[in-house]
């Protein structure tokens, strides 16, 4: 860990004035950042701790949704009565991640910004275009078990590791972001994270100086909510594949099919074509197969992670079968 300055602003304005520029890094729960600082993957000169900025309430919105403050802990979100009742996919996704101790510290905004667990990213003696642009990618010809099969680039095949954002993507939540000079913007979670492309160092659309202030959940919808996380051990492991689903039926046909996937890409993966295909159809094994065909048509494995392609297909089928009460 390098020496750094620690600053603790007491207002958002103050925070903006401190964090404007390249040298400052925001810290909330620190569950990911501190580890990366110890490994010198992150070497901020200044840490701006935003723990005094409030932003720790979950409030009803006018349209019947919820506004989750950026500093609400994962534990508080997962245990919130309305989230458990109206957005169970979110509660379950959070509880499927990390450990109780980590969830007690981890925050909503911080969780969205957590960085990949790619082994080459976290080892500063290995090449990584995300950590050190232009140094190469150790994973593509190395051990790629954790890595992506959708939306990868020749520069980077890392995955976004989280669970919470996958559920938020299925729920079509919106990230509320405040920049300096009172500029406020809203970005759908589905657009918040970036694909690696030629800029693998860029995890998300936040600009320097911008601070996440909240995540807004739209009004709850009818339907069954499922979060299915496939992993080798049953806790404290990142997803090999995960599926967040909000599925509603009308009679014999599917009326809603909001799906997002974890473990497959540099971002929670949402493919709007899946809902287009599924809605209005009678669920059966063939339909689920077609959905998987669509989802995975451009999927590319890197040896070690080839298994994710059939695993995603099977997990999607399991989730759709469960949600639609279809025997396959």
């Amino acid at each position: 860990m390098r020496p750094f300055d620690l600053q603790r602003p007491d207002s958002l304005d103050h925070a903006h004035s401190l964090s404007d520029g390249e040298t400052a890094t925001l810290i909330a729960g620190g569950t990911n950042l501190l580890d990366l600082m110890k490994l010198q993957v992150e070497t901020p000169e200044r840490l701006v701790a935003i723990d005094r900025l409030g932003m720790n309430a979950i409030e009803d919105t006018e349209d019947g949704g919820l506004r989750i403050g950026a500093l609400v802990t994962n534990t508080a979100t997962a245990n919130h009565d309305r989230i458990r009742a109206d957005y169970p996919v979110l509660a379950r996704a959070i509880l499927a991640g990390a450990t109780q101790q980590l969830r007690n510290r981890a925050t909503t905004g911080g969780n969205l910004c957590q960085r990949t667990r790619c082994y080459y990213f976290t080892n500063i003696d290995q090449p990584c275009n995300k950590r050190e642009p232009g140094s190469g990618c150790g994973a593509i010809d190395g051990i790629a078990r954790l890595h992506g099969v959708l939306g990868t680039s020749p520069q980077c095949i890392a995955t976004y590791p989280g669970d919470m954002a996958v559920a938020m993507s299925a729920l079509d939540a919106v990230v509320e972001i405040e920049g300096a000079a009172d500029t406020r913007r809203q970005v759908p979670v589905r657009d918040f994270h970036c694909l690696p492309g030629d800029t693998p160092w860029r995890d998300n659309v936040l600009e320097p100086g911008e601070i996440i202030t909240a995540v807004i959940l739209p009004a709850p919808v009818e339907g069954k909510q499922i979060y299915r996380k496939v992993r080798e051990r049953s806790s404290y492991a990142f997803a090999l594949v995960s599926v967040a689903a909000v599925i509603a039926m009308e009679g014999d046909t599917i009326a809603r099919a909001d799906l997002a996937f974890g473990g497959l890409a540099h971002k929670p993966w949402h493919d709007p074509r899946l809902a287009e295909l599924l809605v209005g159809k009678v669920p059966d094994a063939a339909l689920f197969d077609r959905a998987a065909d669509l989802l995975l048509e451009d999927a590319q494995g890197y040896g070690e992670n080839d298994f994710k392609i059939p695993l995603a297909r099977r997990t999607l089928a399991a989730v759709l079968a469960e949600a639609t009460e279809t025997t396959i």
Binding site: R117, Y119, Y120, N123, Q126, G142, I143, L146, E232, R233, S234, S235, Y236, A237, F238
Partner: peptide, 17 residues
């Protein structure tokens, strides 16, 4: 080199297993 060199990525059983 050993790539999974911590307890997050070297999977010993956890309580739930």
């Amino acid at each position: 080199h050993l790539v999974n060199c911590d307890l997050a990525e070297y999977h010993v059983p956890v309580n739930r297993d």
